[in-house]
Amino acid sequence: MRIVILACVALGLCGSGLYMVKRSVDARYKELKQLEYTITTAEDRAAILAAEWAYLSRPDRIISLSSSLLSMRPIEPDRILPLDAIPLRRPAPARPQTEGDSND
């Protein structure tokens, strides 16, 4: 008889456990759907924004904007130098050795 009672309790526990798992799966599934929807709308918005950015930054527009708003022109060739042509730092002048300088 005790075995029957134990089995009933175990069955009850299993049943409620299963029910809870089922509920949590449903909740997560809902969450997943919500996330998928958010991702899709975000992707759509990103696509629109990317297209708008490309439209606003199209070279044709930049050229006409810069020519009307900025006084910039193509750089004269004599104003461009390769990086190597610029001496970045003067070679340090040789310092006279004093006694205190030595580490040994």
Partner: peptide
């Protein structure tokens, strides 16, 4: 990598 054609909703 600049956009030349894009599909938008």
């Amino acid at each position: 990598g600049r956009l030349m054609a894009q599909t938008v909703p």
